[in-house]
């Protein structure tokens, strides 16, 4: 706590890069995960293979995947960014697939019967109905990404992990604790905020 109180600006700046990293990674991840989730919802035979593969990738320990990515792209922002995009696929695509798959078929039929095009049905009916479930996936992906992003401090000096790993190198427990507490608070705050968004979308 002492470090946190003595260097609030430094902690806040690293927290900001942490958030930035997670948000950019999740936005890019969603560009892949949304079509993959829709595909899984539309093709029941493809779904177990697709989600199974993404799930298997998700099981790979983050340090292991990150180390492999570092061998490929070097140190810096890129390896942790790529790792986050890869990990988020499972959580986001699963949420999209569950959400779209759970939409009442009668509503989809009714929308088609009204002459809506398939993209109008997707965006106007299915995504709208599936929003709370999809947001659940976003929340889980966000919390997990905030956790994994702490390793960014190990492979390239981004985010709150910088405090943790610099603290380890310099034998400064106060820095380690400051980084850990800040990352934990960030995760708890993101979880709480996204739960509120989820609830607002449900009503």
């Amino acid at each position: 706590m002492t470090y946190l109180l003595a260097h609030p600006a430094r902690v806040a700046a690293l927290a900001a890069t942490h958030v930035e990293l997670v948000v950019i990674a999740l936005v890019v991840a969603a560009l892949f995960a949304f079509p993959l989730g829709v595909l899984a919802a539309r093709r029941p035979r493809v779904s177990p293979w697709l989600l199974g593969t993404l799930g298997a990738i998700y099981t790979v320990p983050s340090l292991a995947l990150l180390a492999v990515v570092v061998q490929w792209v070097g140190l810096g922002f890129l390896p942790i960014f790529i790792a986050l995009v890869v990990y988020a696929q499972f959580m986001l695509a699963r949420g999209v697939a569950a959400g779209i798959g759970g939409v009442d078929a009668a509503q989809v039929d009714a929308a088609r019967g009204l002459g809506m095009s398939s993209s109008q049905v997707l965006w106007g009916v299915e995504v709208r109905q599936a929003l709370p479930v999809m947001l659940g996936g976003v929340r889980i992906a966000t919390v997990a990404s905030i956790a994994i992003a702490t390793l960014g401090g190990y492979v390239g000096g981004v985010g709150l992990g910088v405090l943790i790993f610099n603290g380890l190198t310099l034998h400064q427990p106060a820095m380690i604790v400051a980084g850990s507490i800040a990352a934990s608070l960030l995760a708890i705050a993101a979880d709480g905020a996204l739960r509120l968004v989820e609830r607002a979308a449900t009503i």
């Binding site: 956790a147 943790i164 850990s180 990352a183």
Partner: peptide, 17 residues
């Protein structure tokens, strides 16, 4: 639920001191 939210690296490191 809070425990589920905490980053694993943070839990390891918070026990260090």
């Amino acid at each position: 639920s809070v425990g589920r939210t905490l980053p694993s690296l943070a839990i390891l490191m918070l026990l260090l001191p």
